[in-house]
Design a protein around this nucleic acid. Structure first.
Lengths: 203, 203
DNA sequence: CCTGAACATGACACCTGACTCATGTTTCAT
DNA sequence: ATGAAACATGAGTCAGGTGTCATGTTCAGG
């Protein structure tokens, strides 16, 4: 068992099989939610036998936790790319918010899986966000050091900013995926900009 | 069936029984989550027979949806009281945020039930937040009209502000309920204040 | 090529828990 | 008082699902 909660395969065949299970699980969990999804259906879609599942995971719950870890890495990579090259902190916020909504639109099932994890494997969920928040806070602290953000408590700010993205993702990514988000992103980014920028500084 | 999804009782006895079921369900769902909770356990704790449950609800899912409706009303009442008498919009935001964290600390199971509803009865969840957001936006629009908030798009702002409270509730209400939230509330409120206040206005 | 370890199979044992129903009791308007 | 509607019972039905296991097959190093 590795840190993702699955048994690490030792052969190429094993790695292929594990991947097939993870991919099928992502679809199944995303579409039907944790308790509607069944191991039988996941293995059927993956094209393997039921028993094979238990070579790689101890239980359905463990698979779910492993998926959350996997998806977390993918989301972070996506956001990292999206934000790369931004020339100011506020540009980081703007791109981060927009990209997150885009990510949710393209991968709604990943969003749902991560959120549902709160009720399936609360510890994995907590670890995921605590980790994410640390990274966020580091970024904010650096921006403070660079004089781009007004000094002050940054932990609470980080959680507030994550909450904004998460909820905007729900509203405009899941519930109204067709809507043009540019005005909303501008409006929210403007609010964040004014909320964070140093005293007496104009855009 | 009324709008809450339960059959409205026609006698005093019926109303008492329904209340007992709702109360027991709140405890059970809050403590164990939707799929760990069982109708058998809820009815046992309520002191009624299993079959009685189905006089009032079509299914376990429907009960869950009904609870969310019920709890929504209680949260709104709580926040309304907490915010009553605030003499400025920013004071409304400050008290709202602080009270929400307090509410989550005192009624963690209600918070969990509402959030889990997203995966049990998505339509009830959506209705709940769309409704809440409308009220929030009305409040913001009024503040704009009163010159307390900078004019601009208010729908996205509302969702951003709700997201902040929700996430702060998770972080400081559920995960670290012992923490003194005053500094965090001040920090976040300050950010919101600067984010919303009219051009060139000082606190 | 050979052999042990890794991987795969799928029928099935076993259990949980939602929901039903035939029967009985309470309420309350008339 | 009385009867019809409302409410209550709880043992039993049944579907659906997780996890097991005895038996095969494939892989990789020697």
């Amino acid at each position: 068992m590795n840190m993702l909660g699955e048994k690490t395969p030792k052969t190429a065949r094993g790695r292929r099989t594990l991947r097939k299970i993870l991919d099928a699980a992502e679809l199944e969990f995303g579409a039907r939610g944790f308790h509607e999804a069944s191991v039988a259906s996941i293995t059927a879609n993956a094209g393997v036998a039921q028993g094979t599942f238990y070579i790689y995971f101890d239980s359905k719950e463990r698979l779910f936790g492993a998926l959350v870890g996997d998806l977390g890495l993918r989301l972070r990579a996506y956001l990292h790319d999206a934000v790369d090259g931004a020339d100011s902190r506020i540009e980081v916020e703007r791109r981060g918010l927009r990209s997150f909504i885009e990510f949710v639109r393209e991968h709604g099932n990943l969003y749902r899986i991560v959120m549902e994890c709160q009720f399936v494997d609360p510890e994995a969920f907590r670890a995921y966000f605590m980790d994410f928040a640390d990274a966020y806070q580091d970024g904010l602290d650096r921006a403070v050091a660079d004089g781009e953000v007004r000094p002050g408590e940054t932990e609470g700010r980080s959680w507030a900013l994550m909450g904004i993205s998460l909820f905007a993702g729900l509203r405009y990514g899941i519930w109204e995926p067709g809507r043009d988000v540019a005005p909303v992103v501008d409006s929210i980014t403007d609010m964040i900009d004014r909320g964070l920028r140093p005293e007496g500084r104009q855009p």
